[in-house]
Design a protein around this nucleic acid. Sequence first.
DNA 1: GGCGCACGTGGAAACGTTTCCGAGCGGGGA
DNA 2: TCCCCGCTCGGAAACGTTTCCACGTGCGCC
Lengths: 321, 321
Amino acid sequence: MSTIHDVARLAGVSIGTVSRVLSGNPATSPESRERVREAALQLGYTPNARAQSLRLARTGVIGLSISDVRNPFFADAAHGAEQEALAAGRVTMLANADEDSAIEARYLRAFRAQRVDGVLMSPQGGSAEGARSLVEAGIPVVLLNRTLDGVDAPVVTFDVRQGIEQAIMHLRDRGHRRIGLIAGPVSVSTGRARVSAFESIRDELGLDPAPELVQLADGRRGGGADAAERLLDLSPAPTAVLSSNALMSSGAFEAIRGRGAAVELVSFDDQDWMRLVDPPLSVIEQDAAHMGAVAMRLLLELIDGGSPRSVTLPTRLIPRG
Amino acid sequence: MSTIHDVARLAGVSIGTVSRVLSGNPATSPESRERVREAALQLGYTPNARAQSLRLARTGVIGLSISDVRNPFFADAAHGAEQEALAAGRVTMLANADEDSAIEARYLRAFRAQRVDGVLMSPQGGSAEGARSLVEAGIPVVLLNRTLDGVDAPVVTFDVRQGIEQAIMHLRDRGHRRIGLIAGPVSVSTGRARVSAFESIRDELGLDPAPELVQLADGRRGGGADAAERLLDLSPAPTAVLSSNALMSSGAFEAIRGRGAAVELVSFDDQDWMRLVDPPLSVIEQDAAHMGAVAMRLLLELIDGGSPRSVTLPTRLIPRG
DNA sequence: GGCGCACGTGGAAACGTTTCCGAGCGGGGA
DNA sequence: TCCCCGCTCGGAAACGTTTCCACGTGCGCC
């Protein structure tokens, strides 16, 4: 790989001049510009970004740590964030924490070692240590979708209460009185928030308050199926079930259909298949890509010295079936 | 952010000693080790990976460019590759090309500027320029799922012919004689390969060779729906349709159901929803995560000075409905 | 016709590491 | 007692950039 010295030698100028030409510094003669451009092209020269960022303070790279690339919700969020960064001339480095805080910690250490300009992350449950140490090291951080106790960083979340309320009122209007909840892991803030919003709205509306109607699951497909089985085992079983994410909904749907049970399922997050199955699922739509884009914009502001601010996004009920 | 100089000052030793202690060089006294460790901990010191990689040749970072994070096939592949890299002590930097060769080019330039140790990529159609320039710059490259004309890099692909053959024979055994194909874009090698494999196997088995039974699409959901509509408009319409990827299958499924048509749909790539819809879809399963892992192993070998080799993976038909 | 000024350039420092080289110091063997 | 060796360490060079500083050149102006 050729360096700036090679270019300088070939162009017959000093490395300072090469640097000036290539970085668009006006203090260069047309002849130098021509010769340097020519030489750089001929050698296929690409400046070493690591050396650049050593000299400059910035790296132009933004770390993006998400919970699970295979979860479409997070994949969409990552995509939205990435597009926004790209538009601002930055490059993102995506890390997949795989819902595992040990892997997350590893990537966050790498981000820190790489001296990324900022980090956008949807934190894992387990430990807030990784995020906290980033914040303490002075690296701009914005949290995605989940909050973290004791970490002083802006967050972009959806209005959980609004979403749950929309869903429960929809089900109540359709005559349901006994509604089950398949909740995500309480180790993440969204999991906890959804449980408490569910309980409080259910009680406000005077629906069946039996505690066994709230079943905790791990957020994965299998966990959703198991939780659905447990709900169906109750007597009487709930006539409607609200599921906290798309993966669990898929498991729950299969369990319910396997039993031939007549239970109405409502899911968080809209996905194509929810329209394709019979009956189609009503959903609480959360625009993940938008969330990612908003969060990235916040992070870019923060990096450019702006003040931290958090945003709560609305959800939208899409009634079906 | 503290540097090695800060640690050295606090520990009362030279930076050379700090470096030796922290990199596990045995030429250090127990007292130095103790003092340095203590100081590093106290300062929350993280070595600057960019400075390290400037001095060393390696960066420990592997670039991973995939076509579309939102496509579960590629998300799985990325996940498999990432796990493999993680196990080998490397960190991956994921770039989402979004099926756009301009974005891809941008990320590949960034990879090159960052001097990543190697690049694993599922190339876009359009231009092979990006991949070629990496190879010419001497950066180890392995291609994922798609080949690229004129680029001398190992590839990991699935056995297209085998997959198509399994699907067509399955359909023939179920009595179908007029089978449609929704093909991916011919700008990518898999798109082209599937069309020619389809045509040759169809002819070998003596099935209806009408050229209008092969419909090209863009690989996206909407394109799949449109192609399905065109197939259904034929008279006679095909009684079975093979779709080249999961996104297009979802569009095609909806179109077929919307028409109330009695057409058997078989899809490449297995996804959860294909089991949930009615009727469930038979699929040609391609283990994307495994592909990613295999490709990463090949890349790691290449980085460590091994010789390049390509791998073709088998597909598996899962008959349903 | 000198003086100063703008402009272009080369040289060198600095960014934060790793590693080589040489030096100091102590101990053991002749 | 002296020498040599091994252990530990500090100093400095090098990696590839950017940018500051100073210097030379040519021009316009008094």
